[in-house]
Amino acid sequence: MSFMQIHNLKVHYPVRGGILNSVVDYIYAVDGISMEFEKGKAYGLVGESGCGKSTTGKVIIGLEKITAGRICYEGVDVTNSNNHRKSAFNRDIQMIFQDAHSSLNPRKRVQDIIAEPIRNFLKLTPKEEKRKIHELLEIVGMPEDAKYKYPHEFSGGQKQRIGIARAIATNPKLIIADEPVSALDLSVQAQVLNFMKEIQREYGLSYLFISHDLGVVQHMCEHISIMYKGRFVETGSKYDIYKNPQHIYTKRLLSAIPNTSPIGRDERKKERILVEKHYQENVRKYFDRQARVFDLVPVSKTHFVAATSSMKGGF
C-alpha cells in the first residue's frame, strides 16, 4: 500500500502587471499531477528544464505553497499544514539538493549541519546526539574527524554525502532528490548513486528522483514519470517507458539521449531526425487546444499515457 498520495496537485504563480500591479495571468508551473509513493521504491521524475519538476519536489516538501490539490500522508491530509515544525510529515520527508555546496551553511561545522534535523525532530541527549552523528558519518563513509570541519574543506562528492547524511538523520520514509548528481563528475556520480541505492536497500527508503538525465533515472528508479509543461505525459515502469514509449514527446526525448557506443551512430542520427520531423508534424494532435497535455489514460496496469480516449488505440 502506498503511504503517501498526491492528488491533482497544482501550483500556479501569478503574473503581475498593468496599472495597479494586479494579477494579469498565471504561470502553470505544476498543473494537476497525481502520484502515489510506496515503501522502498524509487520514483523518477524526468523532463526538460522549466517543465515544473523541481517545483513538484519543493511543493511536496513544503517549500512552495499549493494552489489546489491534496497531499495525504498516512491517511492525514497535510496540504499546506507544514508550519507545525515537529509534525511527523516534516520528519519523514527529507530532501537532497542539487548543489550540495550552497545547501550547506558555510559557517557551520559538519557536526552542526547534520545535527540540525536531529535537534528539530528527535529528543536526544547530547551524548546520544554525538553517537548518532558518528553513526551517520560512518554510514556515508566519512572519517570521524570530518565532523569538526567546515563544508568548504570537502570535495563535491563528499559535500553531497554530507547532504545525504543530513537527509537520512531522522530516518525518513521518502527522500526527494532534486538532481543530486548533475553537478558531479562521472566517477563521483557513480559513488553517490551506489551509496543512495545501498541506503535504500538497508532502510527501505523511497526516493523521488528528479533529474533531466535519463541514464541516471533508469539506473535508480523502477517507476518513471515524464513531465512536460507542468503535467505528466507518460508514466509507467522503467520498461514501459524505455521499451514501449507511447507518447510522441517521450519518444523524442528517448531518441535524443546520446548512446555510449559509436557503432550505428549514423543510423541513430537518421532515426532521431525522423522522430523530430514526426514530432514537429504531429505535435498538435497530442495536445489540446490550449496546448495543454491531455489527461492520463491507462495503456496497461502500470503504464499511463496522456491522450484523449478516442486516441487510445491509435498510437
Binding site: 563528475d185 562521472l186 541514464g215 539521449i257 546520446p258 548512446n259 555510449t260 557506443s261 559509436p262 551512430r265 541513430r268 542520427k269
Partner: peptide, 10 residues
C-alpha cells in the same frame, strides 16, 4: 566530460 556526446560525434 560526456562520453555519450563523444560517441555520437567524435
Amino acid at each position: 566530460h560526456d562520453l555519450g556526446v563523444v560517441a555520437e560525434v567524435a
